[in-house]
């Protein structure tokens, strides 16, 4: 297929420079909080790093606390950094409190005998912290209702959309939102550029296929390397 060969040739001409890629990597490590890697990367690439590793570590501490389900601790850490973050971002504050309620319920579901009295701290927390916010926005109200339902249904009978709340992925999501809010509060770009780059790759392919540009049926991103393929007979064999 000659036209696809020419695509390959064009791609060779369009290789980004290493310093551009190194910038993307550093941007990612700093933005998403990989302090160890960022420090090493600055050294190994001879990039003089203008970044303050300590400021990454601050954010990582918050992230780690959220990942571990220590929401109260995370809220304290955020407020230590900049009390305005949660004061001005009510949605984010609500998400954190909702997660905190979920963590309390999770604890009961995991360790308790399922007696209703065990849920008392959860109910008290919901009444004190979340209920006053619920009327301000229907979204809050729905979220609160769903969370409370976790106490009523036994886990094995729960519908998927409720079960989602107990998935640890939710911690990751909230941690990401918090990280963005902190970055924004410091006047920094809230998201690492590599994310948009990856999306642009997927988007560009979809646009090309819509426009009926002549492309090979699959357009491998090259993550698996040639050693994953059996090059002798041209068959693609995944080991």
């Amino acid at each position: 297929m000659p036209s696809h060969d020419s695509l390959d040739r064009k791609m060779d001409d369009l290789k980004p420079s290493k310093s551009d890629i190194n910038w993307v990597i550093m941007d990612y490590l700093v933005s998403e909080g990989y302090p160890g890697a960022a420090e090493n990367f600055a050294r190994e690439t001879n990039l003089c790093s203008p970044i303050e590793i300590e400021s990454i570590r601050d954010r990582v501490r918050v992230q780690t606390a959220i990942h571990a389900g220590q929401i109260a601790e995370a809220i304290d850490l955020i407020n230590e950094m900049d009390a305005e973050i949660l004061d001005t971002n009510h949605v984010l504050h609500f998400h954190l409190l909702q997660l905190q309620l979920i963590e309390i319920i999770r604890g009961v579901l995991a360790n308790g005998q399922g007696r209703s009295v065990e849920f008392r701290p959860a109910i008290e927390f919901a009444t004190a912290q979340l209920a006053p916010r619920a009327p301000t926005d229907p979204v809050y109200q729905t979220a609160l209702e769903r969370t409370m339902a976790l106490m009523i249904f036994p886990p094995e009978k729960m519908v998927p959309e409720f079960k989602e709340l107990l998935d640890v992925k939710l911690r990751e999501k909230v941690a990401t939102k918090v990280n963005r809010a902190i970055l924004e509060s410091r006047g920094e770009r809230p998201e690492a550029k590599i994310r948009q780059l990856v999306r642009a790759r997927a988007w560009a392919e979809a646009e090309s296929r819509d426009a009926k540009v002549d492309l090979p049926p699959t357009f491998d991103i090259g993550l698996d390397g040639p050693e994953m393929h059996n090059g002798n007979d041209g068959d693609v064999m995944v080991l």
């Binding site: 695509l7 064009k10 791609m11 060779d12 369009l14 290789k15 980004p16 551009d20 890629i21 993307v24 990597i25 590599i194 780059l197 990856v198 642009a200 790759r201 560009a204 392919e205 646009e207 090309s208 426009a211 540009v213 492309l215 357009f219 991103i221 090259g222 993550l223 390397g225 040639p226 050693e227």
Partner: peptide, 23 residues
Amino acid sequence: LGKPASAALEKMCAQTQVLLDET
């Protein structure tokens, strides 16, 4: 060593630009 000359991330940038250019 029989490895690709560029990493997937680099390849991906080049692919994206080619796709954009062609479209």
